[in-house]
Structures are given as C-alpha cells and as structure tokens.
Write a protein that binds this DNA or RNA. Structure first.
Length: 296
DNA sequence: TGTTTTACCTGTGAGC
DNA sequence: TGCTCACAGGTAAAAC
C-alpha cells in the first residue's frame, strides 16, 4: 500500500535511471492502467515515444516525469498495488505487468520501466502541467513550480519545505470530521494513508474519531511532529511491505512493517501501556488504536 | 457547501 | 479438494 515513504523510495530509485533518458518504445498491455489518461492507449504510446524525461517528481502519493521541451508530464499513481520496476532491456514479463516503457539513457544504456499492478487501482497518464498555486516548487525532486493538472488540488505533504503548519492547524479548526478521516483527505495534507494515519495518531495519543476541530492547536502541532517522525522513519527503513504489495524499483521489500506500533496489531499489547490494540471498522477499512492511551 | 458513502479491482486466506 | 466470502484500501464521483 504505497503511501508517501513508499512512493518516495520509488521516486528516488527512478530518478538516476530516468533523468535525461529518451523513451524509445511504449507498450500498453492493459488499457485499465490508463484510467487517468484522457486519450486512448494508442495516443499514449505515440505521445510518449521519442520524448526525453527531465526529472522524477513527487507530491504526496503522485509521481510524475516532466517531458523535455513540452508542457506536459508522464503522471503515475500507484494506487494500492502499483509497482514501478527497472528491468534490463527485454526482460521477461512481470506478473500483472500493465505497461512497459523502453528507455535509452546516455550513461546507463537501455532499460525497461515496467508498471505492474495487481488490483488495477493505479494508473498512468499524460497530463498538462499547470502553475502551482503558491508559486513554490512542485514537490520532491524538482525546483519547477508546475504540477500536472490532476495534482493541482492535492495538498503539499508534511515533508515538503513549502508545507504550512499554520494553514494545516487552521484547516483542522474548520473540519467537523474525525481526525483520521481528515488525515486521509489528500486535499488537507497529502501522502498519508491508512497505515501512517494509525501510527501517527497512536504516537500522538489521539483517538481516531476525535473531531478535528476539537483538537487544541498545541496538540495539532504535536500530531504534525509525530506524522513527520513516522514518515521519515519509514522512509529510512525503505517503506512498509506486506506480502509483495509494495517493493522498490528493484523489487525489494521495505522493513518498516517491523516498526509498526498499532496498524495491523489487533489484539497485541500496546507497546506503551500494555492494553490490547483495538480494530475499529472505519469507512470500508480499519482503524487500529489503543483505547487506553488514545481516549476520545 | 461540507461530509459521508460507494464503486472500482483482484489475490489471499478462513471457514465450511 | 473446492467453493464462497470477507478483507485489504486510494481516489473520485455520487449521495446525503
């Protein structure tokens, strides 16, 4: 389940291999991988072939590759099970392979970028670049102040230097939803999914159903600190991998699953107080928390 | 307008 | 052994 740390691991893995590389061939094996793309698979293949990739940029869970001397980018969202894999040119098909992009890099030679996705929630697209609303750099990996139009409404993530803590606290004051729901709202703060929302709330000792507007400002500041700590620790450990759902560009799993305190630990003793971690149904998914040290 | 629910999708494992 | 069903969850559209 790729959230900010997992997507950043993928971004930093792709960056040296793709920056400056030319696209020499594109093969769409399953058009469902293009649900975000406004045109057809044939358009997609034709529009990419021959273009040069300038960078690999991330905001929240979105990744994109600006195309040289053009006002558009190759946009990627991994969804729940998407993988971007770097493979030797002509390598055998991956399981659930949806799109293959053959590139030629001036220093690294030829290789294939494979987009594989089991649950087909992820997708690729070619999207027009628009100016960022605050004129600051778009996100991680680029100094340019432009984002794909489909990313324009996505908030900055907590690791972005241009993220405003004050704006975040102000937004919380206006939200009458539970804080867990608000943390998952990518227009409020991006990059956080179910795993890191549960972990951050556990660390900040906040019950997931606490109304966002009821959280005092100092507590909101503490929550942001915990969010950043959890994201940075997960990033340092290569992300969170359950089964084979998330891997880096070389197909390797991350280690953060061993560091989880609440997520997926239903029935285990809370590492802080020893009371059992509880699982609560929440919006077609689950919240995991300690009812003793995270009281409403 | 703001908030909540639903649809999309497939592999895995539990239960029968 | 083979079948059914619940579950995992990010995003956007629909419903409330």
């Amino acid at each position: 389940m790729p959230e900010l740390p997992e997507v950043e691991v993928v971004r930093s893995g792709l960056e040296p291999a793709l920056t400056g590389a030319s696209i020499i061939a594109v093969e769409v094996l399953d058009a469902r991988a293009l649900t975000r793309h406004p045109g057809t698979a044939v358009d997609f293949e034709a529009a990419l072939t021959g273009s040069v990739m300038d960078a690999v940029v991330r905001r929240g869970k979105f990744l994109w590759v600006p195309l040289r001397a053009r006002n558009d980018a190759l946009l990627t969202h991994l969804g729940m099970s998407g993988q971007m894999l770097l493979r030797a040119s002509g390598a055998p098909r991956e399981r659930h392979e949806r799109v293959r992009i053959a590139v030629s890099h001036p220093r690294h030679g030829n290789l294939d970028v494979v987009f594989a996705d089991q649950r087909t929630f992820g997708s690729l697209a070619i999207d027009t670049l628009v100016d960022t609303l605050d004129s600051a750099a778009a996100g991680s990996g680029s100094g340019r102040a432009s984002v794909p139009s489909q990313v324009a409404h996505i908030a900055r993530d907590p690791l972005d230097p241009a993220f405003s803590d004050a704006d975040f606290r102000l937004l919380l004051k206006k939200k009458s939803s539970g804080i867990k729901r608000v943390l998952l709202d990518q227009t409020v703060v991006s990059g956080i999914g179910n795993i890191y929302a549960d972990e951050s709330l556990w660390a900040a000792r906040i019950h997931p159903e606490t109304l966002a507007k009821d959280i005092p400002s100092p507590k909101a500041t503490e929550l942001l600190q915990e969010v950043r700590f959890v994201l940075q620790k997960a990033l340092a450990e290569g992300g969170t991998s359950f089964d084979a759902q998330y891997v880096n560009v070389n197909g390797q799993a991350g280690y953060f699953a061993h560091s989880l305190n609440a997520y997926g630990r239903t029935g285990d003793a809370c590492p802080r107080c020893g009371h059992p971690i509880i699982r609560l149904a929440f919006a077609n998914r689950s919240s995991h928390f300690c009812a003793h040290c995270q009281q409403r």
